[in-house]
Each structure stands twice: as C-alpha cells, then as structure tokens.
Design a protein around this nucleic acid. Structure first.
Lengths: 248, 248
DNA sequence: CGAGGAATTGAGAGCTATCAAGTGCAGTGG
DNA sequence: CCACTGCACTTGATAGCTCTCAATTCCTCG
C-alpha cells in the first residue's frame, strides 16, 4: 500500500539561530552543542509545522527524517489491525522521535497531538553528524537512556497499577516532566484527549473519566475547565507508589 | 540501608579469548569488534558466575558495572514497596544490562533467573572504551534501539491484550528471539517460573496458568513437562496480532 | 440552530484477581 | 527406603474491577 508523506506547510526560518529561544535548546541532543556545532545541526534540519492530529511518521513507512519537537505535544504509538492503540510516550518540546528503525522502516507511529513545530533532520545527515561528533553520539545515548527509563517506569504502571493509580501516576509524571523542563506550574493543561490518555494507560475512555472523577472526589485534584490542579501531590504519589500501607 | 554487593565466585578466564565460542559474540556490542579491539574489551571485563535468583544489581544502588550475559537467563525489573514487580525484559546470552542510570544509581533491578555467567565491565572503562571507539558507541546506540523497540512492543502487549493473547505474544516473542539468535528450535524450554511470566505480563500466576491451559486446550501449544512446543504458531500470532477478524 | 465530537455517568456483562484446595515433584531426614 | 516438607503449578469458586453499551451534557463549529 502507498504510504502518505506528511504534507505540512514548510516553514523555513532564516539565519540567526532561533535555537536560543527554543525550549528544547538545553535538552538532550542540543545540550552539548555550542555556537558553530549548534549552527551546523540547525542547518542540517528544516523547520516544519504540523496541524493537530497530523502524522509525523507511520510504522512501516520507509525510514525518513528524525524529528525534534520544538513546540506543541506529540505522541509515539503502535496500533493493531483492529484499531487498538498503545501510546508509548507523549513528547514535549525538546523530545526526539522517529529515531527508531527496523529493517529500514519506522518502528512506531508519530503523531501530533496539538499543533506541533519540529526541527526535522534528514536521516543521513543526522547519522553523519553523530559520527563526526562523539559528544553528539553520547548525547543520543543519554537521550535514549532517559527514554528507556521513562518507558520502563511507564510499563510498570501499566502492568501493575489499577485505574485510579495509573491516572495518578500519569498526572504526576506529566507534572514531573514539566518541572524537569523548568516549567514550575501548579495548573496542568492537558492538551491530550481522554482517548489519548486511555491509549497511553491501557484503559478505556470511560474508565479514565471515572478515575478523574474519583481523584476529584477524593480531593486530590481539581479541574478548572481546561486546566487541572494537583491539590494533593503527596496523596497522588501515595496512590501510585503503591504504598498500600497508607493511613487510609 | 546498606546495599549488598553480589558475591559470586569470580571466575577469571585466562588468555586466548573465549569470545569465539560466546553465543553473544556476534550480538550487539561485540559485533563491530574484531581481534585487537575484542581483546581490549574482553580484558576490560571479568567473567562472573551467578547462581539462580541472585541479584546482579539493584535499583537505587550506586552505579556499578555493566553486564553482558554470556550464559543463562536474567531479568530486568522494577519492584514496588508492596512487593509488586514488573519484569521489563528477559535477557538471553548476548544481552546487556545494568547500563541505565539515574543520579548515579541503577534504575532497575537485574536478577539471574537461571545460573548466569556474565562479562562484567567496570563502568568507567566501559564508557572510556565507547568514547575511544565510535563504532562501539554506535553499537551501544543500536543495542539501545533494539531494546527500546522490544520494550515498546511489550508495553503494547501489556496495555492492550488480554490474558490469553499476552501469553501467546510472550511465547511467540521468546521463540522469535531464539530464532534471531540462530537457535532454530521447535521446543521451547521455559526457564522462568510462572511467577516470572506473570510479573512480565502484568498478570497473576493463576491467570498465566489458566492461559497456558487455554492455549493447550485450543491445540496451539503442547507441554511436554519441561519443554513447550508451539504447535500452531500462526494460530498464536492470530491471537496476539489482534486480528480479531479471525475465522473463529 | 443543528451537527458532531469530547466528556461524563449509569447499568450490566465479562474478565481477572483473590482465596482456597489439591497435585506433582525434588530435597531432607528418619 | 520412604514419609515429610516446601515449592511450583493447576484448578475451582467467588468477589471485584474494568469493559461494553447506552444515554446525557457540554461545547465547538458550520
């Protein structure tokens, strides 16, 4: 079957690196880069804008570029023939996706959740750049380590926790990630739908919804329309750390 | 709390690289190495023997060596305070573990399932070797890619499949891995206990047992005491590919 | 204003966990 | 040599949680 090339409106930014203002500037791959090298990597890629729900790449497609999210939120997932989908991770600005391959094809699906802007790096150039710059190669290893760690934690949650706990874990994880990115916020905005969260946590939309209601009823979170406040982070942590020996 | 250093009987092999006979010789990290480099890496490490159920490393312990399994089967897992455990992967000869770190500590638990022999590499030397040899660095990236892919697939199974399907997926995955290692066998020996499988698949021992019974009753597998035969691999695949549009 | 999607909530079915009992086997010791 | 013990595994019955199906509300968009 033919694979559909993504068709975003190319949006090439001219000179004077916008990297300085990029939220992912000090994250993973770009962290060890400075001045000249940063410019070299930047020139290697193009800036692309994707509308919400647009696929960046599909599992099985011939290997294309590597993407670094600079704005918006995306997901990496895997879908069965019958439509069941597992979201492996949510990607925030600074995160990289599309790197994994299998027989010269993408291993997973990459999809924009919100509108997304990416630094898009052609595969060959990306690999060559890594070969030329050991520090960059190490940065890739570090990035992959971090992803592996995150995925491992997440698998533990999906495999061991029950509904309420999984959602608590998800919220805390998201909050932690924002913290790690230097965004100290008290109110989370959840750009992904309940369906996305369900696919991420291995549950149904209805169960996710009930879990939110349950957490709200217990006074652990508060929902103000678009935003969500973690009222009692410790309470949430107590749930998903499975310290079932809680005061109750 | 004090962490217990593993206390295996050290078993240093002298000259004349045993790598030639190592099942993991042509796998991941060692693949790009030849002659001199292979010897250099070999000398970097020591050979260690572990008894069944002995921990190689524990999550939270200060970062120690990196391990490459050369004989036996091990697991990488994560355990909650209440004892619930999620096994992230089973490691066969050739697989590497103990690489992931977090704040200078191991991220997960490594444990021998059967008796295990490892090539044990001190962290510093390992990293230095990677820094000196770009090919080795790339081999690490490739290895991590493969792991990430495996873990991603596995998470999909845990999140989306039901009991019978998960066990089918597990068996097929194990068989595929053996195939990839060049071991063309029809009868699988399952060295891990039902409890291990349960922890791997996010289910209870009883459910795993019932799933095995179910697969047997459907004529998909046959159990000959220690060994297990995949009678109908296609039937198993039909289960876990979630081609629910099966003839039934 | 109507259409459609996202989210919530309810009721009942279905699957898995839990609790409990029984089997088979290997290692131990009388 | 053979009870005895511990452990892995299996099987049954029941409770509990999640899924499924369905209805409703809210909100956005045309």
């Amino acid at each position: 079957m033919p694979y559909s090339l993504p068709n975003p409106s190319l949006h090439t930014v001219p000179r004077l690196l916008p990297c300085a203002a990029c939220p992912g500037r000090s994250t993973n791959l770009c962290r060890p880069l400075a001045g000249k090298l940063q410019a070299e990597l930047f020139d290697l890629g193009t800036r692309q804008r994707w509308v919400a729900r647009e696929p960046l790449f599909r599992a099985g497609d011939p290997l294309g570029p590597v993407f670094k999210i600079t704005e918006g939120i995306a997901s990496v997932s895997r879908t069965f023939a019958n439509g069941q989908r597992q979201i492996l991770r949510f990607l925030l600005p600074g995160d990289v996706c599309g790197y994994l391959s299998e027989d010269g094809r993408y291993s997973f699906d990459g999809e924009a959740i919100t509108e997304v802007v990416t630094c898009t790096f052609p595969r060959a150039g990306f690999e060559a750049f890594a070969a030329r710059n050991p520090d960059f190669g190490e940065a890739i290893r570090l990035e992959m380590s971090a992803v592996l760690l995150e995925v491992g934690r997440h698998m533990t949650a999906v495999g061991q926790l029950e509904a309420l706990e999984r959602v608590a874990d998800f919220l805390l994880g998201l909050w932690t990630t924002f913290e790690a990115r230097g965004l100290h916020i008290r109110a989370l905005r959840l750009p992904m739908t309940r369906a996305d969260i369900a696919d991420y946590l291995g549950m149904r939309v209805e169960t996710v919804s009930r879990a939110f209601t349950g957490l709200r009823r217990r006074g652990l979170i508060e929902a103000d329309g678009e935003t969500l406040v973690l009222v009692d982070a410790k309470g949430l942590a107590a749930l998903c750390d499975t310290e079932r020996s809680a005061p109750t």
